[in-house]
Nucleic acid binder design. Sequence first.
DNA 1: CGCAGCGATAGTTAAAGGTTATGGATCTGA
DNA 2: TCAGATCCATAACCTTTAACTATCGCTGCG
Lengths: 299, 299
Amino acid sequence: MDLNLRHVRAFVSVVQAGSFTRAAALLNLSQPALTVQIQRLEETLAARLLDRTSRTVAPTRLGRELLPVFQRVLRDLDAVVIDTRDLAARRHGVVRVATLPSFAASALAEAIAQFRSEHPRVTFLIKDAIAQRVLDLVRNEDVDLGIVGGDVGDPELSVLYRTSDVLHVIYPRGHPIGALPKVTVDVLAEYPLILMDPATSVRAVVDLAFVGAGRLPTIACEATYMMTAVGMVRAGLGLTILPGSAREIHAEPELRSRLIDDPQFVRSVCLIKKAGRTLPAAAEAFCGTLTGLIVGSPA
Amino acid sequence: MDLNLRHVRAFVSVVQAGSFTRAAALLNLSQPALTVQIQRLEETLAARLLDRTSRTVAPTRLGRELLPVFQRVLRDLDAVVIDTRDLAARRHGVVRVATLPSFAASALAEAIAQFRSEHPRVTFLIKDAIAQRVLDLVRNEDVDLGIVGGDVGDPELSVLYRTSDVLHVIYPRGHPIGALPKVTVDVLAEYPLILMDPATSVRAVVDLAFVGAGRLPTIACEATYMMTAVGMVRAGLGLTILPGSAREIHAEPELRSRLIDDPQFVRSVCLIKKAGRTLPAAAEAFCGTLTGLIVGSPA
DNA sequence: CGCAGCGATAGTTAAAGGTTATGGATCTGA
DNA sequence: TCAGATCCATAACCTTTAACTATCGCTGCG
């Protein structure tokens, strides 16, 4: 016979209750069932643990020595069960997300706020990083979820949701571009541009669009941070092109933005996880909130 | 469903083996049985612990977090089982004995020596004390076994074995008492005696025997330690009366001893334990050795 | 494309565990 | 002191759990 947790629990209960009958009542069990469980436990250990007379029950010396060990084990395991079920019920937990910085400040922040209003004990760990780093973090399972711009071809990663981020052009209030019926590559090629760093996914999209249209942009400046690009526009250095999801496009009251009417000026954004891996319950639930929100937002 | 140790063990094995099939082989179980056990465990915890594809098995984040907890619990319980079974098999253990000092040095010492030659990893804790204290120690279960002189009437104590210790008279070589055909109360009443302290069981027997015979002893001296009494005999202060089991009666080469031919000069000696209590396995076994030895010795 | 390896599922049988009824021992109160 | 109450152990019976064998579906590899 193998040691069984029910038997251990039975033993601890009998000692605490000081009686088979009372312990049985506490465990919602018949008294004979308890008697048998204790017998099995004693068989398993090949030793007597309880001295019973017809009136009293007392642990043997061995029983007294084993009691604290058993109690600790039961306590530990009960804690695990309760904690894990709690986790599964999304009552608490940790969600780790790696994301492009542009998302961290906008849609992601909103999604977290909404999710936490429903699940206040879920905490979030956010890593904002460039696309390549996000992919690595997800691949190594250092994070549960990743949000990257561009397409994901890696079979180790699976795309949970995919949306697109239409690029906007940012210009000073009163700039002639605001009055045009449509903004196209050809229009953008007319003005000096402040573009993002070549390592960014936004820049990759912009470059591809210009190449596709057979035009060359006039690059006034390059910036790594979107806020820098916005500052340059405000300073009159030129126009910039940023994803619609970026908060920065609304940061300056005297700047305007409008979307670019060209299907190539679309950055796809993917919510990804490691392929073949089950997400923690809280992360799973958060995906729902996140995708629900993004669908509803101007894409 | 309730948490079950078999399920926990199954989970740990699968993670360690990295495969259901290999783990099943290690556990001497069929693979489907293992699959079901893991499913049950996941149901119990309401969470997925293992991500399985048809080629690989890997713990989920939760599974990785739970693994060390489970491993510790299993380790603890396995240790308990092994240790306890070892204990039951008398391969090790502690036997606590409270005894009259006269016994500690003689029969008890021999019994322990013999027992330990068969069970070398059993250790003994000996408390030598006067009768009353021995009774208390056994009653409070501070010791497993007690050896007391005199009779035991306490219902809280049960007598496992009872033998009698015939009292001997100790005299110098050449003393006339050595030449008599029989030693009786009347003979003893003729000589000055060194008697044990009135609180001892030996003295109680001696007093009772003299009273029963209607004689009064000539008390030359009283001693608490038997060795003191022996020394006084050697110094010529008189004769003394000691139990046959006492080593002290053979301690001096120029002294002789012979038993007293009077059924009243018998001290009963009892091996006792707390009534209604199961002895630890090693103590139980020791009782056998002890009683076997005493039977064979001159009682 | 077919074979080999792995986990999941289905159906059957053996073991474990539960319940009620009852027995034997001991304490309690009339 | 004797009847009743109380408590643990046992017995007979039934339900639930868990094991095995057989087989399926999927995936990676010649």
